[in-house]
């Protein structure tokens, strides 16, 4: 965390205040997975065991639920009508999911393993050994972005600003309240710029360096969506709720 006591813009503090408690989200998702496991055990030998990919889908699905819950709790977001809220989330859900994963790895700080939201650690070697070519490329691409953000020493407050910049994307079409979304985006950009200048005065280009990483995140999320779509079409995605609904929403 940046040095305490430095003047942090009020908006950034508000963003941090609205952040969900990581341990609470972790326990909710872990409880869901335990419930899944018990359900499977009760069905005995007949039940097909959940594959690693299947487990990842459940984790992504549950993480998506927590992301929607986070968005709902944001003061700015509440000002929007549900129609606009849905358009914004349909536009950026995969970027927020990938950012959640990437930011966890940035602070996990290990090169050879990844940390899941459940707190489990998976050796990269074993993950890549099981993964097909496409998933392996995705994981490697993710690790490259993690490395760039580690070098930048991206901090938690900057990550929350990223989330708002991604959610309040002024390029989303057919919004009823386009001007409001644009204004929030401008305010968040301003707050992040002010934050970087206050807290990292020796790095005047930090703001632009941070923003340069967002297109990489978008590319990764588009690749992740394509991969998920491919797996879904081949019947390999076990759960059929929020993850698949959001996938369809973007593609119809």
């Amino acid at each position: 965390a940046p040095p305490a006591g430095l003047p942090v813009p009020a908006l950034v503090l508000e963003f941090v205040r609205c952040e969900q408690d990581e341990l609470h989200v972790r326990s909710k998702i872990s409880a869901h997975l335990e419930h899944l496991q018990q359900d499977q055990n009760s069905r005995g030998a007949k039940a097909e065991p959940l594959s690693t990919f299947g487990l990842m889908c459940h984790i992504a699905d549950q993480t998506l639920f927590s992301i929607v819950e986070w968005a709902r709790s944001c003061t700015f977001f509440k000002e929007l009508k549900v129609g606009d809220q849905m358009k914004l989330l349909h536009n950026c859900w995969s970027e927020l999911l990938v950012l959640d994963y990437i930011s966890r790895q940035v602070h996990h700080g290990k090169q050879d393993s990844i940390l899941l939201i459940t707190g489990q650690e998976i050796e990269l070697v074993s993950l890549l050994a099981q993964a097909g070519v496409t998933l392996a490329d995705l994981v490697r691409g993710g690790q490259e972005l993690v490395q760039h953000l580690r070098e930048l020493q991206l901090d938690h407050r900057e990550i929350t600003c990223f989330k708002y910049l991604i959610l309040f994307n002024p390029d989303v079409k057919l919004l009823e309240n386009q001007a409001y979304v644009e204004s929030v985006y401008e305010q968040v950009s301003g707050a992040l710029l002010e934050y970087t200048l206050c807290v990292y005065p020796q790095h005047l280009e930090r703001f632009s360096q941070l923003l340069l990483r967002l297109p990489e995140l978008k590319t990764l999320s588009a690749q992740a969506e394509d991969y998920l779509c491919y797996k879904h079409l081949s019947g390999e995605v076990p759960c059929n709720n929020l993850l698949i609904e959001m996938l369809h929403a973007k593609r119809t």
Binding site: V68, N241, E245, H248
Partner: peptide, 18 residues
């Protein structure tokens, strides 16, 4: 189309006091 996005709409519309 409306039916397709039922879950997200439910999540965004649901009343927290329920």
């Amino acid at each position: 189309k409306k039916k397709d996005n039922a879950l997200l709409r439910y999540l965004l519309d649901k009343d927290d006091n329920m």
